[in-house]
Amino acid sequence: MSELIHQLGLDWKLLASQGVNFLILLASLTFLVYKPLIKITEERRKKIELGLAGAEEAEKRLKQIDVLKEEKLAEADKGAIKIIGEAEKKGSKRFEEILKNAESRADEVMVEATRVAEQKKQEELNRLTEKANALIKEAIVKMVELDPKYIDDKLISRAAEVIRKKA
């Protein structure tokens, strides 16, 4: 047996050396490679998961915002239509009021103008009457001054001449 062990080169010191060699490598690689790499891989996985979840959440919120925007736009449209309708109603009402006021004012102006025209006409008439009176009076004075035999034609023509000039 010992010859076989010798031939195979078995030696407990070499066994121990090889064993220690392996254990050093095991401990070193565990500390230097496996644990840090597993940790960093896990960290990376978490970050990717977080990023994906964030992106999904952002997409979800974006969709919600889109829906909200559509709703708000629809509401705004409805509001705008309502406001425009009300404005149109108010406008037409105001237009009618303004029209009514204008008509009433026009009537008043017309009445006033008619009154003023009437008054002016009356004044003119009075003035004409006064002038006519003065002319007639003047004509009578002239008539009294003239010879009756010439009175007819001359008187008439002079009276007409005076009236034409005064008019």
């Binding site: 090889q18 060699n21 050093i24 490598l25 070193s28 690689l29 230097l32 490679v33």
Partner: peptide
């Protein structure tokens, strides 16, 4: 040669440990 293997792997391990990054 087993020790050389150990040193080779240790060098690689140290290189990884030094430059480990996300």
């Amino acid at each position: 040669l087993a020790i050389v293997s150990l040193l080779v792997l240790l060098s690689l391990g140290l290189a990884i440990k030094r430059k480990i990054n996300l």
